[in-house]
Design a protein around this nucleic acid. Sequence first.
RNA 1: CGGGGCGUAGCGCAGUUUGGUAGCGCGCUUGGUUCGGGACCAAGAGGCCGGAGGUUCAAAUCCUCUCGCUCCGACCA
Length: 504
Amino acid sequence: MLISTNNDLKRVTDVEQKAGRENNNQQKEFVKAITPKAVDYSQWYIDVILKAKLMDYAPVKGFMAIRPAGYALWEKIKEQFDRRFKETGHENAYFPMFIPQELLEKEAEHVEGFAPEVAWVTKGGDEILNEPLVVRPTSEAIICDFYSRWVQSWRDLPVLINQWCNVVRWEKSTRPFLRTSEFLWQEGHTCHRTEEEAEEEALKMLEVYRECIETELAIPSVVGRKTDREKFAGALRTYTVEALMSDGRALQAGTSHNLGQHFARVFDIKYLDQDDQLKYVWQTSWGVSTRLIGALIMVHGDDRGLKIPPRISTYQAVIVPILTKKDREKVLKSVRELSDQLKDVIRVKLDDREEYSPGWKYNDWEMRGVPVRIEVGPKDLEQGKVVVVRRDNGEKVSIVREELTTYLPRLMDDIQKDMLKKALEFREENTRSGSDYEEFKKIMETQRGFYLTPWCGDPECEEKVKEDTKATIRCIPFNKKLEHDTCLVCDKKAENAVYFARAY
RNA sequence: CGGGGCGUAGCGCAGUUUGGUAGCGCGCUUGGUUCGGGACCAAGAGGCCGGAGGUUCAAAUCCUCUCGCUCCGACCA
């Protein structure tokens, strides 16, 4: 499309160009700045993250720079999770990025799971290393090595440690934020005295994830257990938070694992219990990553760009002054006062750049997802009012200036609530239930979404669905019984209901 | 690993068929006029045409080799 536009342009004469066609063309260009979701969802996603300046591609495939706008978002998300981790008794620490090959190889299932995607360090300076080092794809191995020395007595338990760091997984196909070769995340690693306590921890953190993602990111989810096929390499059980993107595909937004004693046994993490017996600890690990930013974009974003929920938005409102020649100084003075005044109640940004027109700024801030825009021009000054525009639904109202300090915080709550509500409605509309395989196949082809259905538990049935439809079992929800109990694929009786979906 | 596509200014591209002084849009710089949904005028800056070899009086363009990126598939959370 762009190409033909350029060709057309080149064929017209200079005179014709100057006669106004340029103007028209520029307007069209802007509409094209973000590819509409309906035209090409993947392209929409890429356009949004680039236009909103969340990231930029690195010279190495699968890597990216997280730009200030994207990183600020991560910082806000991080803050919310970190607070909850501390509230549930965890402490932060930091472990090394390089893991000796020998350590990674201790847990058989674990190596096997990660081997295809580890990055190796084989040289230090000029020296070829005796034992190559693995760049952490996750830190179980190195942390367990430390824990084997740190844990001696039952009095040392529980160990409740979290770390914020980067990890590297050599991915074959990558997408910004959703799957990159390096990403930022948090990994909690805990040790417990009993199996029950570890299980309780794994489920507790799963709930922390679910609640935080819902409250702060305004993303509803379904939680449950992973099937053996989908569980973490080396875990006893894996639990997951699954969110539904606006194209009907599911995204794993967070996972929590009960590691059982698999790692404790191979890394020799033992404690002397009160009964004078040496026992292996029971462990958990759990993580969320910068993938949440991808979820945020795909759950809330629209054809104009990002929509950030107020609770995690870097700026909750942006003030755009309308600077006319006549009233320039008056308006500037007024918005500066307003900005100072609002700083006490919300995170506010004054955009007083003079090189951009108000219209340009509207589009720019909308693209970047700021929840509220406040317009202040000469007409507003006369009336002692300002214009307040919501990003989530476009609603535009004129508000008396004095009321803003009470109005805006309330508006932020409303927007947060409405965004969650909208996402929840979408989730519900796109969660279907049944056990008709033909209908299921059709749905996975078209609207997608979640499909809640009985499953006999046989990995072969799970595999067949994947081959036929590319859909996988996202999770086995807790306490979900269906009236109908014949497996979606075979005729066997099903113990559990599961959520199927095509996933990222 | 298999198949397709692309490397020309910061970004997006045209120019390659038919060899002949390297272009367009956006962005950037300076100055001015504007400012309630991506304003306009004027003047500028910016290129080893991915790399190496060859053919030719002459190569972005033709030939050979090579490197990189990307999409689809396979593999994988």
